[in-house]
Design a protein around this nucleic acid. Structure first.
Lengths: 137, 137
DNA sequence: GTACATGCAAAGGGTTTGCAAACGG
DNA sequence: CCGTTTGCAAACCCTTTGCATGTAC
C-alpha cells in the first residue's frame, strides 16, 4: 500500500536513519496542506502511531529543517509552524482565521535582492508576511 | 534640567498615569537608537533607577505598544525588541552582528498593498525583514 | 554490535500573572 | 482616598536536554 512520501524519499537520499517515528512524521508533513505547528504535527502523528513523543517531534522537525527538507515559520504566534520545502513563496496570514495563503511575486523578490545589495549586504534570508482581513463583497 | 522626552509627552497626551518607572522606561526608549530587547531596556532603566522590576518593564512596554507609542519586533531571536513608533520603515538584520539597518522602499510598500487586495484581503499589517551578511570589498 | 534515536521528565528561556503593598491624580 | 501600578515569586508556554532504554544499519 503506502508508497514513499516525497519527504521519506528525501530522507533516504540524505542518508538519514529511518525510524518508524520519522517515517510517520514525514508522512504527516507531506500530507499537510496547511502550515501545522508542532503540537498539531504531534497530534496527527500520534493518531497514526501512539509511540511518538512530543520530544521526538521537536527533534525530528529540527532534523528535517537542518536537512533542508522542511521550512520552519514563525508567524509571531509564539510557536513555530512547518511546511515542506517546495517552491519559494510568501505568506498572507488571515488575522481572523489564522488561515495562511501562499503567493509569489517575482518583482518583490528582485527588489529585496537589490535593496540588500544597495545597503552593502549579501541577502542570506528574508521574511515577508502580510497580515490581512478578508474583504467581504 | 530634564525636559520631557517625546515618549513622555505622548504618554501624557494619552492620559496614562505617569509613574517614575514609566518615565524612566520612556526615556530609555526615547534615547535608544538601536532596537533594544526587554532585558536591555531593563538594564538601562535600572541603571537610572534601581527600583524597577523586569515585570514592570514587560508591563510598561506592552502598555506603550497598545497605546501605539512603541512598536514591538520579533526578529526570530526568541525575544522581542522595541523601538519608538516613528516613520514606517523596514529592517535589514546583520546575521553576524545582530545590527539592525532601517530602510524604506515605497515601491515595495505599494506592492504589498496591491498583492493583498488582489488576494481579496485588506492589508492590516505586514512584516518584511531582510537577513544579510556584510559584503567586504 | 554500536552509534544513533527515543521516551520520559526535568530544565530552560522568555513572558505573564496573583497578590499584597505602594502610589498617582 | 480609591483605583492603578508595582515588586516579588510563582506560573506559563514553547522548546530543549540528560539519561537510561531501544533500535537501525
Amino acid at each position: 500500500m503506502a508508497e514513499l512520501s516525497n519527504l521519506e524519499q528525501l530522507c533516504l537520499d540524505k542518508g538519514l536513519k529511518m525510524t518508524d517515528q520519522r517515517r510517520t512524521i514525514a508522512r504527516v508533513i507531506s500530507q499537510a496542506s496547511d502550515h501545522p505547528d508542532v503540537e498539531t504535527v504531534y497530534q496527527r502523528a500520534t493518531a497514526v502511531d501512539s509511540r511518538i513523543s512530543i520530544a521526538t517531534v521537536y527533534r525530528t522537525l529540527k532534523l528535517f529543517e537542518d536537512a533542508n527538507i522542511l521550512i520552519r515559520h514563525d508567524f509571531g504566534e509564539g510557536r513555530a509552524r512547518y511546511e515542506e520545502h517546495g517552491d519559494h513563496h510568501e505568506h498572507l496570514i488571515d488575522i481572523e482565521s489564522g488561515e495562511v495563503i501562499e503567493f509569489h511575486n517575482s518583482e518583490i523578490e528582485a527588489m529585496k535582492e537589490r535593496i540588500a545589495r544597495d545597503l552593502g549586504y549579501e541577502l542570506i534570508d528574508h521574511r515577508l508576511e502580510l497580515y490581512g482581513r478578508k474583504i467581504r463583497p
